[in-house]
Amino acid sequence: MNAFRLVGDLCHLAAIVLLLLKIWKSRSVAGLSGKSQILFGLVFVTRYLDLVTNFVSPYNTIMKVFFLSSSIATVYLIYTKFKATYDGNHDTFRMEFLLIPCALLAIVVNHEFSPMEILWTFSIYLEAVAILPQLFMISKTGEAETITSHYLFALGSYRGLYIMNWLYRYYYENNFDVIAVVAGIVQTVLYCDFFYLYITKVLQGKKLQLPA
């Protein structure tokens, strides 16, 4: 494992910890898109089916189990325990606009036409766009809590670092997965607008607020 991959994974881990910390400390899921969290839950469920078929390493298993369980826990917290604080009126992005194209694309463009590979490919495509309901929600309300901004920054950095990892693996290990790389680039590009706001506002100590 190279440093980009490790730091990428740690950013992903940090993002999820920040998200749970925000919910736990504020006792509220205000400002969070339940739809994005459902999509991420679906991403992990469809991607980590290999937990039961392939053992890679303790690190790999622990991370997969953590991502899987934390994403399911987040969905649970939003829709049951802290439902009263969930801002469903602003979480209006239609999930089927993402689910259907990702499913169709996974059936057409994959490494191997088998159920496991199609589900893995679906998870890669879906992860690339799963943050859109959250970004859409921020664009509707015009603001985000600082800890939610930190969460999004860590989450966006993770796939950006994976791109560096893929470049490294291409040059030094002759390994290249076109599906993961293209989807990863799309995923990272979706965060660019947010990265700009994060650097120019949140890091200057201001709350993330969109111009009216």
Binding site: N60, M63, E112, T121
Partner: peptide
């Protein structure tokens, strides 16, 4: 196998 994706990456 060769066609399979990398199960190590998260």
């Amino acid at each position: 196998d060769e066609l399979d994706h990398d199960h190590d990456e998260l």
